[in-house]
């Protein structure tokens, strides 16, 4: 379909786009090691000084713990709720209703985070719940849910529901069927989706900022430093955040791969 010349053009375009997406990230990591306070060329030497500065920031430890706590909550709660929602939606027989449910579940991903952030802040204010980590946690779960549902829905579309029926026919209780059949089969996908939620939570800034009050998370801390002007320890902090995100997403992707190979295994097992 495509001749050689066009292929070259296509490759150039692709490489240019990937460069455009990843160059900014590379710049941040590069400058986190650069031996000058100003972010400009040429780079003369390398240093770990900025990492030292970043760790010397007394707010870093609390910010880190808060970020990790929020990520854990998001992974558990959004992972659980999202999986339950995807399962519930699958059981809906009428495709129209199911489609509408899934579309509605994606709404928080389309509404600007600013609007979600202020709407939540106003709700908590009306309820008399002062801004805190707890309020931010509710927001994080909400922001992560659409992505968990999307991931789990994609997995469940290839899920073989007849094995569940067999289990029920053989007398297993719904709980037992879930524990012994369903969960082991979907575990890699659930894990992948939960880690995705953790990554989203770790990176979440807007909703957090409107709801967390005077507490810190890593992005809130980075934002505060950015507003103060140029400070190379931002690059170091940002690189640390990037590293954590990459780890989470890689593990999430790996569990996704295992999920894709799971159905074939289950078929072999059934033959025995």
């Amino acid at each position: 379909m495509v001749s050689g010349g066009r292929n070259v053009l296509a490759t150039v375009y692709l490489v240019a786009v990937l460069f455009y997406l990843y160059a900014p990230v590379a710049v941040i990591v590069l400058f986190s090691f650069a031996d000058l306070p100003r972010l400009s060329m040429p780079i003369e030497g390398l240093t770990l000084h900025w990492y030292g500065d970043a760790f010397a920031n007394p707010l870093l430890t609390t910010a880190l713990w808060n970020s990790l706590a929020l990520a854990l909550i998001s992974a558990l709660v959004a992972g659980g709720l999202g999986t339950a929602f995807a399962f519930g939606a699958m059981k809906v027989r009428r495709t129209r209703v199911r489609g509408a449910l899934l579309a509605a579940s994606l709404l928080p991903a389309i509404v600007p985070l600013l609007v979600i952030g202020i709407a939540l802040a106003m709700l908590f204010n009306a309820l008399g719940l002062s801004q805190s980590l707890r309020n931010a946690a509710f927001g994080h779960v909400l922001v992560c849910l659409p992505f968990v549902i999307l991931t789990m829905n994609a997995r469940l579309e290839t899920f073989d529901f007849t094995i569940l029926e067999s289990a029920r026919d053989l007398g297993a209780s719904p709980f037992r069927a879930f524990r012994d059949i369903t969960f082991p089969l979907i575990r890699p996908s659930v894990l992948g989706a939960a880690l995705l939620a953790a990554a989203l939570s770790l990176d979440e800034f807007v909703v957090t900022w409107f709801n967390i009050g005077s507490h810190q998370t890593l992005p809130v801390l980075v934002w505060g430093l950015m507003r103060q002007g140029i400070n190379p320890s931002i690059n170091a902090l940002a690189s640390l955040l990037l590293f954590a995100l990459i780890c989470l997403v890689t593990v999430s992707g790996l569990s996704g791969c295992r999920a894709r190979s799971a159905p074939t295994v289950s078929k072999q097992e059934r033959m025995h």
Binding site: V17, L18, L21, Y22, A23, P24, V25, V27, I28, F31, R38, L39, S40, M41, A199, L200, D203, F205, P219, V222, W223, M226, I234, A238, L241, L242, L245, I246, L248, V249
Partner: peptide, 28 residues
């Protein structure tokens, strides 16, 4: 392409400021 979604929202914006700034990467 999708992986870049997780390369840090604030980090990316800050990176572009670093690149495009008056004494930024591109100008210098």
């Amino acid at each position: 392409i999708l992986l870049s979604l997780f390369s840090g929202y604030l980090v990316r914006i800050y990176a572009w400021r670093t690149i495009l700034g008056k004494q930024g990467l591109l100008n210098s």
